[in-house]
Amino acid sequence: MNIPDLLQKMYQDKRLSREQLNSLLDIHWKRLFSVHHELRFFLYAGILLIIAGLGFTIKQYFAQLGDIAIISTLTLCACTAFIYCFIKGNNYSKEEVTSPNLLFDYILFFGCTVYSMDIAYIETQFHVLGDLWNNYLLVSAALFLFLAYRFDNRPVLSLGLSTLAAWFGFTLSGHRFSFQEYYRLYAITYSIIVFLGGGFIYLLSMKKHFFDIYLNFAVNFLFIALISGVIDYKLFSLYFLGLLVACIILVLYSLHTRKFLYMLYGIIYGYIGISIGFFDLIRHETSLVFLYFIFTSLAVIIMIFLLSRKFKEDE
């Protein structure tokens, strides 16, 4: 049965109002066509391009432009963006708040990024805090988290959490992905702090919809750290035990909340970690390696199949 027939049938059975029928048919026949997501995408892309252009320009022309011009321009941009947001923004609420206009979220994000550039430039050029420069990151993270909650902005929350990760020492820039060799324990600490922080705010019923972002950051950092620990210390280590416990908790949470992204994390990270652990024991027996992959993958398929059936029955 196609959509118009279904809607007509529902309407004739008095299961659908006349207004609903008309609006759904309008959407189906595309007499009403929303370009909301397209406009948001191009605004976001536009802001990203402006930030990229600013970054490239400063890097290439800093000598010609001079410190004062760069710092004053960046400060002016950041301040203007923040002032605009405080003037135009809706009042604070613990619940989800919609943005006053399409551009609002991106102006806040732009302000935060330009602020980061400004601070990074000042510190790189003048070494104001010297060896304590890292604390800028902590202050910035706190500011971003505050702004994210004040204006209900998910991208800025994400920016705040990644800035906090940078304060812990994790960087993706440069010539290395410096996760494995250092700060494994820092990664675990970071994920615990993010999880507890997010959980505490969730329990206070403040912006409950933000909790998923906290959890995504915490889960990914924790699992990568634990897997890197398993690679170094193999099967008989606290890392392996930690990985198992974390996987079980995550899978149970996923089943409880029916958010299956966490099931995916739990299964994939868990399988990788367990395989690394066992691989060390069986690597000399090639046949065992093959059999391991055959039977474990079958076990995962059967387990998830049964789970998916159970959910189907529950529905």
């Binding site: 790189t124 991208p155 990644s162």
Partner: peptide, 28 residues
């Protein structure tokens, strides 16, 4: 009019999470 499915995190969130790395890489 039509809300996309919410998976907890979206591409925009991931994109912004990478911004500090970009800022860091563009320092003179």
């Amino acid at each position: 009019l039509l809300k996309p499915e919410n998976y907890g995190i979206n591409l925009a969130d991931i994109g912004t999470a990478l911004t500090p790395a970009f800022v860091d890489s563009q320092q003179p």
